[in-house]
């Protein structure tokens, strides 16, 4: 039926693609003038704001809780419960080490813009260099995170140890997975470019990868401040004021 008719039409019409008919109907312009992939990526990043927002909110809710509990509930008698113990953030976090990591990721954002700019100018060689550099810096960041995690394990902070560990590893782990995906993506892009698959017209494809990469860096900028730099309660000095909050938790234990 219709199929065959159209096939014939196509096979025969292959050489008759008129210039005038070229754009008008079968290639509707994007109505906004914004490339579809780019628009998709921005909405994806908007969605990621809620994803990381939820994780960050969880972290912010729990960031002081382990210390508070350990101070305020030390002496609970007869509950049969142990109280969450350290290591606590002030004992494990190394701001200088992470500052270097943050710097690496920051620098990778810089190499990423250069990669996007080079492909825009049609300079594929430069594009390869900058893309590989970006992927490499991302990998260095991941290695840094691996050593940081190992160090924390040695100091006794696992994901089960206390609620700080749980929320810390979850938040930074999800970020790390995003970095990992980005590294794979950029590596694939450079492999494709070595096989001659990237040219000036792939500017948008590269730009979209760049947007993702910058967003990951932005998330780390936020995490660096909220996780590493913002002060934690020591627990030691505070006591009475926290009892109310801590008692609320005890009261929520009837199901034990």
């Amino acid at each position: 039926m219709a199929t065959t008719a159209l096939e014939v039409q196509r096979a025969g019409g292959g050489t008759t693609h008129g210039d005038s008919g070229h754009g008008g109907s079968s290639h509707p312009p994007t109505s906004t003038g914004i490339d579809s992939k780019k628009l998709l990526m921005w909405w994806f990043l908007g969605s990621e704001c809620v994803l990381f927002g939820s994780l960050i909110a969880t972290f912010m809710i729990y960031r002081n809780r382990a210390q508070d509990l350990s101070v305020n509930l030390q002496g609970i008698e007869g509950s049969g419960l142990a109280v969450s113990s350290g290591p606590f953030p002030n004992q494990v976090l190394d701001q200088l080490y992470t500052a270097v990591s943050a710097g690496v990721l920051l620098f990778s954002s810089f190499t990423m813009v250069l990669a996007v700019a080079s492909v825009g100018r049609g300079n594929i060689k430069a594009f390869r260099v900058w893309t590989l550099a970006t992927a490499m810096l991302g990998a260095i960041f991941l290695a840094g995170q691996y050593f940081e995690y190992t160090e924390f394990f040695h100091e006794g902070l696992s994901i089960q140890q206390n609620i700080f560990g749980a929320s810390f590893f979850t938040l930074t782990g999800v970020h790390g997975m995003h970095v990992f995906v980005g590294v794979i993506w950029l590596t694939m892009l450079s492999i494709v470019s070595f096989r001659g698959g990237i040219s000036k017209k792939d500017h948008t494809n590269v730009e979209v990868a760049g947007l993702y990469w910058h967003f990951i860096d932005i998330v780390w900028i936020v995490l660096f401040t909220l996780v590493y730099l913002l002060p934690y309660r020591d627990g030691a000095e505070s006591a009475e004021e926290h009892t109310e909050g801590a008692m609320r938790l005890v009261q929520s234990l009837p199901f034990f």
Binding site: Y62, L81, A82, Q160, I163, A166, S252, L253
Partner: peptide
Amino acid sequence: QLDRFLGTHFYIPSQYVNGELTLTGGDP
């Protein structure tokens, strides 16, 4: 899933930590 698979305690106030039932401060 982390709570169930890895023994974290985001949504329960206590969990077995190192084999001991521990008040961890998670909040349903």
